[in-house]
Write a protein that binds this DNA or RNA. Structure first.
Length: 890
RNA sequence: GGGAGCAUAGCUCAGUUGGUUCAGAGCAUCUGCCUUACAAGCAGAGGGUCCGCGGUUCGAGCCCGUGUGCUCCCACCA
């Protein structure tokens, strides 16, 4: 078989994706093996995978593939989220482009469009997941609006309603005027911004509405500061601090709203900060959460001057129908013109924006459905605090998690949208309400409760997307719609949840709540939705900026795969991804992955070449190299095991990378490589193929395609993805130490060659002066070959006219035809000597310190003694060598 | 306003019970090589007051205090 010069990912990746699918290797059904379950954090159905997803999916795939190779029945469930607001916004925009107004459509027609849209674009993410090599079970794809999933959500709603945990009520909520729906507190993102603080005059009047004093003196007015002059028509009071001397005379007085001349009371409350602005606050209960609370306390009237779409309502009486921002400009202009603005100042502020549409959020009073959170939060907190669920990395998020749960507020779960699970509440004409799982049940219930038959209409609202996704780990196995079924019994709880730290409240905490609320009959360890939570960092560009459409720094995943190959993308993103920290994405690391592919491809070519010239009779010359590498492999395997169990995947990959590139390719293969055109001993060849196979297996979870390909080319029949990892074995520490010594002396001689311009092809003779020739016994042959030495001869005396090297505590003499550069050698040796002497002094100082010798642990003292002996030996070796150089020079 | 985290080589980061073979890795840099697996490579090298200051200790990159500079989360005073 002819192998191409370089590795070509594209065909290989397609080929293996097909083969894996055909083999059904990633499809899981319950059996007698232990389960290892992962549910994908469902991406938005109409979205595309960005680099954050790519990181998360890669991490999950590594864990899942590794578990599968460890003998678990691994099951990774793919799926997507209907993402109510985001998707509905996209569908509305698409319809608008076609000239269709959503409000002109019936609910049914709109949903038809939405499902069409979902069919058209929903496949993109699945295609990307497959391209990336994710070993998901495609038989288990779940969508949060699937029929059964839908009914599970409804079931949970009605259940919680019956338990008294869900209620409906008028509250101040965050309103998204663009999507025209309520938002939960978590869906609001605050951003710093620059605002203007307007100081506006309000005239003062007595109870009858007459001015208190002459306005000309400037005393008949009260000045308030506001950022939102367009809301003054909604003012229902002016509030000042009771201790504020400036306003003490205004008890019982009234103020008059400018422009509309409506009279409002002046009230007194300690809530007001006397030092801020003028110390007088306009109170607008309909449009500010604090004012709302103040209004409740003082029994103030509520005047809602905004419509749902953010335009001014009839109640505003002026500028009705104008958009809130346009109205602000006009009102400011009018106030200014009438001399009612005293001052305008720039003001740093923070404003809330809708996470889904980006619109500036309005506080708004409206009737919504809420879920009581206190009861749900307590066990969810306990599960994490008591360690049933472990958050990685470390406990960094424990404090945040705890704080949120301890201060959690009721969850606003209704949304004024059509795309989502419609709230199963039915009303009669008087507003009486029944909640039931379907219309028929609702009618029956109504009849039972009210004793009459009436026409009922269903609540128009749908549920918050997270109210469906919090059931995800259960309902992907039908754990809600069909509790106790074989699948959910086998796969639940899942092993690990891999997700971004930004959705810890939206999703992670709520899944824990749902899991505990719907598995009350089980012990805690069985009720939790997952045992571990692994938070990946945020993917940024190489300058540390967030990835965004505006900056254009968010690469297209498929394009990257096309350019570098999926393995290289996975490698690049994992190698630069320290556990838990943000990741600075740079295509340079993808390139490194591509180079790594090639490196392995070339190792494959070498090994395949050997296969052509096998010699069955040739004995293995010496077994050192194979014995050493076997030990090295065992050692690395243990490291990888430990690192992966600690979710330190980036470091595990680095260990494997270095094991393959440095230890296998640079050292081992060179050590066993036959001379030019010489045959290879069959024994060595087969051992090498085994080593290679094991390396590929170790790397496979990280880079599944190329490993699978090479594994098959070197003759393994079983696909890597289902090949069980061999049990860990103990490494031979003697071999490992010999290997390190060998690397050291090879490098020492090569370094001497470079420094003295001895070409690699130039033959040399090496003499070794050592007290311990035993440690060199096994490695001398390889050593000589690797440095192109005709011989390595032990000596007891210095050899004249040679290159002098000190390696460890031993001395090497290199004999070559080229004359040696004495001065350069001397300089190097003297530098060494200086360092060693300094080192010795520090060790001696320590050992000379009685308190150290007495207090430190005995093994620490012993180590110091050994350091001292080594340093002394090395120093004398260097000194003798320097003396020899002087002799040579004479 | 409240809380959390970070600061180690030019860059990105390891450094897990405090012990100068512990100051490391990858990338980048420099030097020499087209050596029949690999120039997408090989061989070799250089590079750091471990943010400043103080303390604990026989001993501090590691522990404590403090200052500085970044990052994030929460709360949302007009």
């Amino acid at each position: 078989m002819e192998l191409s010069k370089n590795y070509t990912p594209k065909e290989v990746e397609n080929k293996w994706n097909e083969a894996w699918k055909a083999g059904g290797y990633f499809n899981s059904t319950p059996d007698d093996r232990p389960a290892y379950t992962v549910v994908i954090p469902p991406p938005n159905v109409t979205g595309v995978l960005h680099m954050g997803h790519t990181l998360n999916e890669t991490v999950q795939d590594i864990l899942v593939r590794r578990a599968r190779m460890k003998g678990f029945n691994a099951c990774w469930v793919p799926g997507s989220d209907h993402a109510s607001i985001a998707t509905e916004a996209k569908v509305v925009a698409m319809l608008r482009e076609k000239g269709i107004d959503k409000n002109a459509l019936t609910r049914e027609d709109f949903l038809k469009h939405a499902f069409e849209w979902k069919e058209k674009y929903g496949g993109i993410i699945y295609h990307q997941i497959e391209k990336l090599g994710c070993s998901v079970d495609w038989n288990r794809v779940t969508f949060t609006m699937d029929k059964e999933y839908y009914s599970a959500v409804i079931k949970v709603f009605t259940d919680l309603y019956r338990k008294g945990m869900i209620y409906r009520g008028a509250r101040m909520i965050h309103w998204d005027p663009e999507a025209q729906t309520a938002l939960s507190d978590e869906e609001v993102e605050y951003k710093d911004g620059e605002g203007t603080l307007y100081h506006i005059r309000y005239a003062i009047a007595d109870a009858a509405g007459n001015p208190l004093v002459t306005p000309a003196k400037g005393e008949g007015e009260i000045i308030i500061a506001t950022q939102r002059p367009e809301t003054i028509m909604g003012d229902t009071a002016i509030c000042v601090h009771p201790d504020d001397e400036r306003y003490a005379h205004l008890k019982g007085a009234f103020a008059v709203i400018p422009l509309i001349n409506r009279r409002i009371p002046i009230i007194f409350d300690e809530y007001v900060d006397m030092a801020f602005g003028t110390g007088a606050l306009k109170v607008t209960p309909a449009h500010d959460i604090n004012d709302y609370n103040l209004g409740l306390k003082h029994n103030l009237e509520i005047v809602d001057t905004l419509n749902a779409d953010g335009t001014l309502s009839e109640a505003a009486t002026i500028y009705v129908g104008e958009d809130r921002f346009a109205a602000r400009k006009k009102i400011v202009a009018e106030l200014r013109e009438k001399g009612l603005i005293v001052k305008e100042e720039n003001y740093a502020t923070r404003l809330g924006y809708s996470q889904r549409t980006g619109a500036l959020v309005e506080p708004r009073i409206s009737t919504q459905w809420f879920l009581k959170m206190k009861e749900l939060a307590a066990p969810a907190l306990e599960a994490v605090v008591e360690g049933a669920i472990a958050i990685h990395p470390g406990d960094r998020f424990l404090a945040t998690y705890k704080y949120w749960l301890e201060n959690v507020k009721d969850w606003c779960i209704s949304r004024q949208l059509w795309w989502g699970q419609q709230i199963p509440a039915w009303y009669d004409s008087k507003g009486n309400c029944v909640v039931a799982e379907n219309e028929a049940a609702a009618y029956a219930l109504y009849q039972q409760q009210f004793g009459t038959a009436e026409i009922l209409t269903q609540d128009a609202d749908v549920l918050d997307t997270w109210f469906s996704s919090w059931l995800w780990p259960m309902e992907v196995f039908k754990g809600i719609s069909n509790p106790g079924n074989a699948d959910v019994n086998y796969y639940y709880p899942t092993a690990v949840l891999v997700t971004g730290q930004d959705i810890i409240f939206f999703w992670v905490a709520r899944m824990i709540m749902a899991g505990l609320a719907y598995n009350t009959e089980k012990p805690l360890e069985q009720a939790i939705p997952f045992r571990d939570v692994y938070f990946t960092g945020m993917v940024r560009d190489k300058l540390g900026r967030k990835m965004s459409k505006q900056l254009g720094n968010s690469p297209d995943l498929l394009q990257l795969i096309d350019e570098y190959g999926a393995d290289a993308v996975r490698f690049g993103i994992m190698i630069s991804s320290p556990a838990g920290n943000d990741l600075l994405f740079d295509t340079a690391s993808l390139e490194q992955g591509r180079f790594f592919n090639n490196k392995m491809w070339n190792a494959l070519k070498l090994v395949k070449m050997w296969e052509q010239k096998l010699s069955a009779d040739l004995p293995e010359q010496d077994s050192f190299a194979t014995e050493w590498f076997a030990s090295r492999l065992n050692e690395a395997r243990l490291q990888v095991d430990k690192l992966i169990s600690e979710f330190r995947l980036s470091e595990a990959l680095k260990v494997i990378y270095s094991l393959i590139w440095d230890d296998f390719c640079s050292w081992y293969l060179e050590w066993v490589k036959p001379a030019y055109e010489q045959p290879v001993a069959a024994a060595v060849f087969y051992k090498t193929v085994n080593f290679f196979s094991e390396l590929l297996q170790l790397l496979h979870p990280f880079m599944p395609f190329i490993t699978e390909e090479i594994n098959s080319i070197i003759g393994n029949r079983t696909p890597l993805c289902i090949k069980t990892l061999p049990p860990d074995a103990v490494a031979d520490t003697t071999r490992l130490a010999e290997g390190e010594l060998l690397k050291q002396v090879i490098t020492a001689v090569r370094d001497a060659r470079v420094r003295n311009q001895l070409k690699p092809k130039q033959e040399i003779a090496v003499f070794l002066q050592t007290d311990d020739s035993d440690v060199y016994k096994n490695i001398t042959n390889v050593w000589a070959r690797q440095v192109n030495a005709t011989s390595i001869v032990p000596v007891h005396e210095p050899v004249a006219n040679c290159l002098n090297i000190v390696s460890g505590r031993d001395r090497l003499y290199i004999q070559a035809e080229t004359p040696v550069d004495m001065a350069a050698q001397k300089q190097q040796l003297e530098k060494d000597l200086e360092y060693q002497r300094g080192f010795l002094i520090s060790v001696e100082k320590k050992l000379g310190n009685e308190r150290f010798v007495q207090n430190a642990r005995p093994e620490v003292v012993a180590i110091e003694r050994k350091k001292k002996a080594d340093a002394e030996a090395k120093i004398s070796a260097i000194e003798e060598t320097l003396a020899q150089l002087d002799l040579d020079q004479k």
